[in-house]
């Protein structure tokens, strides 16, 4: 059984193909905002529209199959930016109608979790899901993924990008802050906002920007990164102690931050929990995770006419098919 998955929730247009549970293609094209700017949703959507034909062809070629060999089409219908989501859903409906195959709407956050679990052979992890727009501490209980903690304002990746732009750095800002931080030595105190298992980043971005005027770039980047990541690890640790899970899975685009990986590793060790990070290609947004999740959740297929975008879709509302 071949499943094609389409990812277009933000800047990445990704198309992946799975043969049963095995990933056989994972192609993508990434929209790059103009220098000094953040993501412009309509521009990103234009990029997806322009590149989808090529990415689809690449994926089929990579998988070494024809369009007609597809059995299921899956699409990330949320959460994400509406204009971007529309492009993915449009393409999915077209394929589903044309090939007369079922359409499975997939929750983007859950796809990150499912591919992470598969790639790391993790069974029941506490998940730290960190990307541009999302920052959540999630774990399964019963037939739903439950959200134990989350950002109350902006995603951590967005916080890094915003701060980087305020420092005059080009996008993507996260890796640049990380590089600068490596050379920082002096810690400058910054606001640390944690409420129970939730956290917030806006105050930190504002204050770090204000203090950057009288500080070395390296030092303020170091202080910003250490503060933001310490907050994140603290709420994750609280959720780990509270849920008593024995595995910790880091995923999402920000998982590429090596300091974050190191901190998670140290924290997990103290709780005798196993720590996992999926391969880089599965941490960032990708089509393979949508294809894989669409395949394992295939019983959730819907009439294409009823599938719509769901920009604020919370992962804790998407029932997990449990083994019968």
């Amino acid at each position: 059984m071949n499943c094609l998955g389409i990812e277009s929730t933000a800047h990445t247009l990704g198309i992946g193909i799975t043969k049963k549970e095995e990933v056989v293609a994972n192609e993508r094209s990434i929209y790059k905002p103009s220098p000094g700017k953040g993501i412009v949703p309509s521009e990103a959507a234009k990029h997806h529209s322009k590149t989808k034909k090529k990415v689809l062809e690449d994926a089929l070629k990579k998988a070494n199959i024809e369009k007609e060999d597809l059995d299921i089409v899956a699409v990330a219908s949320g959460p994400g930016l509406p204009p971007c989501l529309l492009e993915g859903v449009k393409l999915a409906k077209k394929l589903s109608n044309q090939l007369k195959i079922p359409l499975v709407p997939v929750n983007h956050c859950i796809a990150h979790i499912e591919i992470g679990k598969k790639d790391c052979k993790s069974k029941d992890p506490l998940v730290q899901y960190v990307s541009g727009g999302n920052t959540q501490i999630i774990s399964q209980s019963g037939n739903l993924y439950r959200i134990y903690g989350e950002t109350l304002d902006i995603g951590i990746g967005n916080a890094f990008d915003k701060f980087a732009r305020n420092l005059g750095l080009q996008m993507p800002g996260g890796p640049k802050i990380m590089q600068l931080a490596k050379k920082g030595e002096n810690y400058i105190p910054l606001p640390y906002t944690v409420k129970g298992m939730d956290l917030a980043f806006s105050g930190l971005v504002t204050e770090a920007t204000r203090k950057s005027e009288n500080a070395e770039k390296e030092d303020i980047a170091y202080s910003f990164q250490e503060t933001a990541l310490s907050m994140l690890i603290e709420v994750t640790e609280r959720a780990l102690a509270h849920t008593k899970k024995e595995e910790l899975l880091l995923t999402g685009g920000v998982a590429a931050n090596t300091r974050l990986q190191e901190m998670n590793q140290l924290m997990a060790k103290e709780h005798q929990a196993d720590f996992y990070v999926p391969k880089r290609e599965y941490c960032g947004d990708n089509g393979a995770m949508i294809a894989y999740t669409g395949y394992i959740y295939r019983e959730k297929n819907q009439d294409p006419k009823e599938v719509d975008i769901n920009p604020t879709w919370r992962p804790n509302t998407y029932k997990i098919p449990l083994p019968k």
Binding site: S141, G142, R146, I147, Y148, G196, M197, D198
Partner: peptide
């Protein structure tokens, strides 16, 4: 109110039954 919200969200995730 935030204090109550922390409790409410914890109930939803931990004691969903």
């Amino acid at each position: 109110a935030m204090d109550l919200l922390v409790f409410k969200k914890m109930l939803k995730s931990t004691h969903w039954k």
